[in-house]
Every structure is written in structure tokens, then in C-alpha cells.
């Protein structure tokens, strides 16, 4: 879709480069950009490596992925250099999507190898160690989005501060180890799930896109319908393996 014929344009940032993409989390930015293009918008996908300067001008959304434990302290320190800019953008309308350790980094503090490291402070909770590492499917029921399906692989959990709203209740898996997981705020979705969760749960992607692109955004185009039918299959396969139901229209976005 060329800029001339598009009905608007959008910019999506994938933060952190390769260390924050080992589980394909930057794929969430790909999903946002593709769905925007499929809906007739011009979309720009901008990867920003750790240590680089952020581009000028507020993007429509930023994606912060998960990262490995050994490099965690260094990664969080580098992310912190962007904390002020991210906070300003967020207040000015930029959507933040964080996955896995990316959620941990958004809080006040993160426990790394037994020591507390200062987080970005965009959220007010703290990420502390779990008794043991968890690697499993993660299924949650969200009031806003219905049943969401993903994967978790973490040795820490984000403990929400008072007043922060969970993304959903855990149906299968561990999440924050208190029966809930993630954070859903105005223009912020953060989850223990890693990987391209917006592809598998397109209702969440459509919520982000409708929020940043406005009413002009729809997911009724042929590409999105095809992708969403495949995503429904992918969720069905996982839920069937876990002997869970797939509630109808659980993750349908704006149609």
C-alpha cells in the first residue's frame, strides 16, 4: 500500500534489537505494522538496538520484548536510558506493548541474580524471583479480550502494585503466581507471555491499532481474516492439548 493511497500512516518501534528478540517478540511490531497495512494505512516498522538513540517524534506504539537472564542487568540499564522518552511518549498517546522480561523491566525494580536492579518506572510494581523457573503454555481469561493463549518461560514474576489492573486471570500456567498475570492500562498492555502474542491473539492487536489509528482502522480485509482464521486454529490446537475450551469470538477485534 503506497503512501499516496493510504488512509493514514503509523510508526511502530521494536526496541532492543536481537537480545530482546530471542523469542520473536519483535514480531509483535511486525504484526501491528502488517495489520495496519492490510487495513490501508502506511506503516513504518523501526527497529532500535540497545544503546542507540531513539528516533525523533512520538511513534504510535513501541514493543519491548523479553531477554535472557545472564544479560538482564545490562539490558535493563540500557533500557533505562530511554525511560524518560518512553514516559513522555506514553503520556502523549504512544501505546506500549511489553512481553516477558520486558514487562518486568517496566516496573520500579527487577530482581536479577539475587540483586535488585532499578526498572524503568513506567509501572509501579516489582519483579521478583519465582521459586523455580517456569516453562509452559500460558492461558488467561481477560475481561477485555476473552481467552488469550501464549507461552511463558521465566524465573521471575511481575508483582503488580496496588491499583494496577491485571491483564487477566490465569487458566493454565503460572503468570504472576497469584492467579493473575500482566498489566492492562490505558495504552499499555504488558504480559508474561512471550513471543508474537499479537499474532496468535489478534483481538489484542486490533485493540492497540484501533486505539492509535482511530475509527479508520478495521480488520475486515481479506488478509486479516485469513491470518485470524489461522490464529484461531493455532489457539484451538494448544487449547485442545490442554483440554480447555476456545470460547467463541473470544479474541475477535473490531469488525
Amino acid at each position: 500500500m503506497s503512501r499516496e493511497t493510504s488512509i493514514g500512516s503509523a510508526r511502530f518501534l521494536a526496541l532492543g534489537g536481537e537480545p530482546l528478540n530471542v523469542n520473536g517478540d519483535a514480531g509483535n511490531a511486525v504484526v501491528l505494522a502488517q495489520r495496519a497495512r492490510w487495513a490501508g494505512f502506511a506503516a513504518e516498522l523501526i527497529p532500535v538496538a540497545l544503546g542507540e538513540d531513539l528516533p525523533k517524534g512520538r511513534p504510535d506504539a513501541v514493543v519491548i520484548g523479553t531477554f535472557g537472564d545472564p544479560a538482564a542487568a545490562e539490558v535493563i540499564e540500557r533500557l533505562r536510558q530511554w525511560a524518560q522518552a518512553l514516559t513522555d511518549w506514553h503520556e502523549d498517546g504512544c501505546f506500549i506493548i511489553a512481553a516477558g522480561a520486558g514487562l518486568d523491566a517496566l516496573g520500579e525494580a527487577v530482581t536479577v541474580a539475587g540483586h535488585e536492579v532499578e526498572g524503568l518506572g513506567i509501572l509501579s510494581g516489582r519483579a521478583t524471583a519465582l521459586e523455580q523457573r517456569v516453562t509452559d503454555d500460558l492461558v488467561i481469561d481477560s475481561e477485555r479480550f476473552g481467552r488469550l493463549v501464549g507461552f511463558e518461560n521465566h524465573g521471575r514474576a511481575y508483582r503488580r502494585a496496588t491499583g494496577e489492573r491485571a491483564l487477566g486471570a490465569v487458566v493454565h500456567g503460572t503468570g504472576s503466581a497469584d492467579g493473575t498475570e500482566g498489566v492492562l492500562n490505558d495504552r499499555l498492555i504488558a504480559t508474561t507471555m512471550h513471543g508474537p502474542l499479537l499474532a496468535k491473539n489478534p483481538g489484542v492487536a486490533d485493540h492497540v491499532l484501533a486505539s492509535v489509528l482511530g475509527d479508520g482502522y478495521t480488520a475486515t480485509n481479506e488478509h486479516a481474516r485469513r491470518a485470524d482464521a489461522i490464529a484461531a486454529d493455532a489457539r484451538r490446537v494448544i487449547l485442545a492439548r490442554l483440554k480447555l475450551d476456545q470460547p467463541e469470538n473470544a479474541t475477535t477485534g473490531r469488525r
Binding site: 514480531g27 508474537p196 499474532a199 488478509h223 491470518a227 489461522i230 486454529d233 490446537v237
Partner: peptide, 15 residues
Amino acid sequence: GSKAAEIALQLVYQG
């Protein structure tokens, strides 16, 4: 394969 839908999802988003 048993992960057919998952790999298909990646492929369609990559064009």
C-alpha cells in the same frame, strides 16, 4: 505438521 497453524501465522505476517 502439528504446529502447522503456528508456522503459517509467521509466514503470512512475513508476506
